[in-house]
């Protein structure tokens, strides 16, 4: 427990800031603090929880919700593949390690080795647990504090846009070529024009999958040559 804590301090700052923002955002969108609290407990995935606010505010669309979730969270599949070996032999803790494998828990557990004499399973368990604790308390606090806020919160929802712009930029800088990012932007813009703001997500995701599948050969070749 003591060994895991220092590694999670940077996450603490980030999760509290984003968590509180998320809680306040839910509150000013008309949801009580129970929503951010329970959603951060059960979903435990920041970007989806922000998107879920818009989904909850829109019309009931279970299929779209599920597809958005699967597409947005698909990256976890690859975290899981990367952690197959590392989670081995951790016993019952493995279930929680997988449950709590958000971007941040993954990046610590994947890159940091447990110090000598410290059990690997427990180390990763506490990294995950601390992270979730920060996120849940931040989101709940934001939901509670949201009602006390007296200043004008108009425009606070831009935090979500800013977060995705930042993640998008980070992705962009990691890519060897930008075809995938451009497909994402282009397909969304075209589908937004064609289908309108309410129903453009499903066709967009279908287009993205189709384009990426069609372009697999050239993109893989280009990826190898650079």
């Amino acid at each position: 427990m003591g060994a895991a804590f220092p590694h999670t301090i940077p996450i603490f700052a980030g999760f509290w800031f984003l968590g509180i923002t998320y809680g306040v955002y839910m509150k000013v969108s008309g949801f009580s603090f129970w929503y951010p609290m329970l959603m951060s407990l059960t979903i435990f995935g920041g970007s989806l929880e922000f998107v879920a606010v818009s989904l909850l505010l829109g019309a009931f669309a279970p299929l779209q919700t599920l597809v958005v979730t699967l597409m947005l969270q698909a990256r976890h599949l690859f975290y899981g593949i990367a952690m197959l070996d590392k989670f081995k032999g951790t016993g019952w803790k493995k279930v929680y390690l997988i449950f709590g494998m958000c971007d941040e828990s993954f990046s610590i557990n994947c890159s940091v080795e447990a110090p000598e004499g410290v059990d690997r399973g427990w180390f990763m368990f506490f990294v995950t647990l601390f992270n979730q604790l920060y996120w849940v308390t931040g989101a709940t606090l934001g939901g509670v504090l949201g009602s006390l806020i007296t200043f004008n919160t108009e425009g606070l929802d831009f935090a979500m846009t800013a977060m995705f712009v930042v993640i998008f930029l980070d992705q962009w800088r990691k890519e060897q070529h930008h075809a995938a990012s451009l497909i994402g932007l282009g397909a969304s813009l075209i589908c937004l024009l064609l289908f309108g703001a309410e129903g453009f997500l499903l066709p967009t995701m279908a287009c993205i999958l189709a384009l990426l599948t069609l372009l697999r050969r050239p993109m893989e070749r280009e990826g190898e040559s650079t």
Binding site: S47, V51, S54, M71, L72, A74, R75, M160, T161, F164, V165, I167, F168, Q171, W172, E175, H178, A179, A180, S181, L182, I183, G184, L185, A187, S188, L189, L192, L201, T204, M205, I208, L212, M219
Partner: peptide, 14 residues
């Protein structure tokens, strides 16, 4: 390739 495309989509979604 999926992450780049998905986050591009989310920016537009916002």
């Amino acid at each position: 390739v999926l992450p780049g495309a998905i986050f591009g989509m989310l920016v537009v979604y916002c």
